[in-house]
Nucleic acid binder design. Structure first.
Lengths: 244, 244
DNA sequence: GTATAACTAATGGTCCGACCATTATGTCAT
DNA sequence: ATGACATAATGGTCGGACCATTAGTTATAC
């Protein structure tokens, strides 16, 4: 406001670099560079603190961040320490869940994304699913039929989608599907969910039959029909919850 | 191994619940329940520590986790504190990046996923893009032409994809695209990238023209052609890096 | 009166040192 | 050999201290 007009301010936003951030970056860099990889063990906290020339508290905050990010796992006791983890998509799912909770992502966006995503997945799975994949899908569908609790059957459904995604041989789709499943889980409860579940099982068998026949269009159509029923239910519940 | 065969072990994996985890959960729960929402300010650390009956260190580790997860932001000074953040997809992108670094997600998976994703996005954008969206896309393409540095032009490309994703009116796709852009960024460097960039600009204009004409198939075809060129380049670089 | 400077209080960031809980390993008595 | 016990390593927690930054308040200068 009171700046002289002759010189353009052009200030760069200063950024206080906290100790733990720098430590995290260094460790992440070693990870990207490959000097650190899954299974490796970091030195003990007290040792690392000396190495980085920070207090143990600051170092611990860095390790805690990395642990929360799913990069390391802290195990205590003798021969314990911070171990670099193998990749787990859980954190991505968690991040997406946080995002949805914090923001105003609508149910419509979620269901639309899922529909579009499953379209791709079914097409790829139709081309690439092995007999092992198909058999596993059938097995899960069979198991779903035998399960008694609503919760157990839902878990089966999640697994079914996950295995289907795996059949694409592309793990990226698996992550996306897992994330959406986890988020939509919160909306799925309702009075008539149990009867819906029952009627969905047959659809899962049909899908496998289409996949085995490599009938892409029929498979996609079956999945769309399937999901649209689920989403109708979800929307109804959501509306009921908003009213109640 | 040495367990008695008469009794099935069936042990539940015990889980040491650390203080900071419990704190995180409670705060996350309040978030999901809506009692905490974006913009709210948490009590001061020393105060919260008393409330949770833990030491300040333990509480700080919890806050640090939440900050790393993008849920809160710690601002210091008087009237500072932990503020609940508005939703930012950055953390999801970060989580995906970590996953790729840690795991063995191949370049092929990344490019395939991007291709499939952009297919959907182009189709949706074709149906829903407003004139404002289209004008912005053109503006970015124009700006790309004027930029001189490779890095600046790449930033324009990322922005172009982001705006295109926004044109779908579904933020989920935006997140996916941002994530893949960030990850693929690492692979994009190379000797002849500059000449490639130049030749890609025209393709961006063409895509906008197809979108404006609501010609879905032409738009999808243009995007596929565009991406396949980029991915060929990326693969070549990747192979060169592996050899070198 | 107004503007500037100095002071004060609140708050996150860091450090230190201590102790606890858990775990692996070595040791010793039986 | 085997089981109980001691030992050491290591993460988890605690409490207190001080620093740096920031917003508000008060004093001072003009």
């Amino acid at each position: 406001m009171a700046s002289s007009p002759s010189t353009k301010p052009n200030f760069a936003p200063i950024r206080t670099r906290r100790a733990f951030e720098v430590i995290c970056e260094q460790i992440r860099a070693q990870l990207a560079a490959g000097t650190l990889k899954a299974g490796d063990k970091l030195p003990a906290e007290r040792e690392l603190a000396v190495e980085f020339q920070v207090s143990r508290s600051a170092l611990r905050e860095a390790l805690r961040s990395l642990e929360v990010a799913g990069i390391i796992r802290n195990v205590k006791g003798a021969k314990g320490g911070a171990f670099v983890q193998t990749a787990e998509p859980d954190r991505i799912v968690q991040a997406m869940q946080d995002y949805v909770h914090l923001g105003d992502i609508s149910l419509g966006e979620l269901t639309e994304a899922r529909l579009a995503l499953q379209d791709i997945i079914v097409r790829l799975a139709c081309a690439r699913a092995t007999e092992i994949d198909l058999a596993e899908l059938e097995l899960i569908a069979e198991r779903t039929k035998r399960e008694t609790s609503v919760e157990a059957r839902y878990a089966c459904a999640v697994e079914y989608y996950a295995v289907l995604a795996r059949a694409t041989k592309n793990r990226i789709f698996g992550i996306f599907v897992d994330s959406l499943s986890a988020i939509l889980h919160e909306f799925v409860r309702g009075p008539d969910y149990e009867t819906l579940q029952q009627s969905l099982i047959e659809s899962r068998f049909k899908l496998v039959r289409h996949l085995r026949a490599r009938n892409e269009e029929a498979a996609v159509a079956e999945m769309r029909k399937h999901l649209e029923r689920v989403h109708r239910h979800v929307r109804k519940n959501s509306k009921a919850a908003a009213k109640g």
